[in-house]
C-alpha cells in the first residue's frame, strides 16, 4: 500500500532517490514517533538524510575556507596588492571571491547541496530576475552622467572637485612646513 510507504516520511519518486531514502532505513537515533501527526515530527522528517551530510568536519572546513577567502578580499586593501593602479582588477577579484563565499554558504550551511530538485525552481528564477533588474537600471541610472545638462553639471560633484581639495591640502601642508622652517 502506498500508505505505509508514505508514513516513512519519504517520497519514492524523488530525483535523488538514494540519498532521500537515508532516514527510511536508518532513522539514526531519531525517536520513532514519526507516525504521530505533530508539526515537530514533520519538521525533522524534511526528506533529506540528516545523517548522510554535513558533520563537524565539513562545517569547519567551510568555515576555514570562508575565513581564508575574506582575508583574500581584504588583501586588495593592503599595500602589497600589486594592482593598486588598476582598481578594476581588484573589483573583479573581490566579486569572484564573494561569489565563491556565497556558493559555500548556500551549498553547505543552507544545505542546498543535499536538497532535491525544487532548489532550482526557487533559486534560478529569483537570481535571473535579480540580474535582469540590475541590467534594466543601466540605461537610465548607470548612464545618467553621459547625457547630463550643462546646468546640472554645475551642481554635481566632479573628479575636479576632489582634485581641488587635494591641491588645497598640499598648499596647506607646504605653508605649515614653511612656517616650521622659519
Amino acid at each position: 500500500m502506498p500508505n505505509s510507504d508514505a508514513s516513512h516520511g519519504s517520497s519514492p519518486n524523488q530525483g535523488d532517490g538514494a540519498a532521500e531514502h537515508g532516514p527510511v532505513t536508518t532513522p539514526g537515533g531519531l525517536p520513532q514517533s514519526a507516525h504521530q501527526a505533530t508539526p515537530a515530527t514533520e519538521s525533522h522528517h524534511d526528506g533529506h538524510g540528516e545523517e548522510s551530510h554535513g558533520g563537524l568536519k565539513v562545517y569547519l572546513a567551510v568555515f576555514v575556507a570562508l575565513c581564508v577567502l575574506t582575508t583574500m578580499s581584504f588583501f586588495t586593501y593592503s599595500p602589497l596588492w600589486p594592482w593598486r593602479d588598476e582598481p578594476q582588477v581588484g573589483w573583479a577579484f573581490m566579486m569572484a571571491v564573494s561569489c565563491t563565499k556565497a556558493m559555500l554558504v548556500v551549498l553547505f550551511f543552507m544545505h542546498v547541496l543535499w536538497e532535491a530538485n525544487w532548489k532550482y525552481v526557487l533559486t534560478i528564477p529569483a537570481a535571473m530576475m535579480a540580474i535582469f533588474m540590475t541590467i534594466m537600471l543601466v540605461p537610465d541610472i548607470g548612464f545618467r552622467s553621459r547625457m547630463v545638462s550643462q546646468e546640472r553639471l554645475l551642481y554635481m560633484a566632479r573628479p575636479s572637485d576632489e582634485a581641488l581639495m587635494h591641491q588645497a591640502a598640499t598648499a596647506a601642508e607646504a605653508k605649515e612646513d614653511g612656517q616650521e622652517a622659519h
Binding site: I131, I141, G142, F143
Partner: peptide, 25 residues
C-alpha cells in the same frame, strides 16, 4: 520568503552598483 529576499537585496545592491559606477565622482 528567501527568494523574495534575494530580489529585495538584489534591487538594493543592483541600484547601488549602478549608481556608484554611473556617478562622475
Amino acid at each position: 520568503f528567501l527568494s523574495t529576499e534575494i530580489m529585495f537585496f538584489a534591487a538594493l545592491l543592483g541600484s547601488y552598483v549602478v549608481l556608484r559606477f554611473g556617478a562622475l565622482q
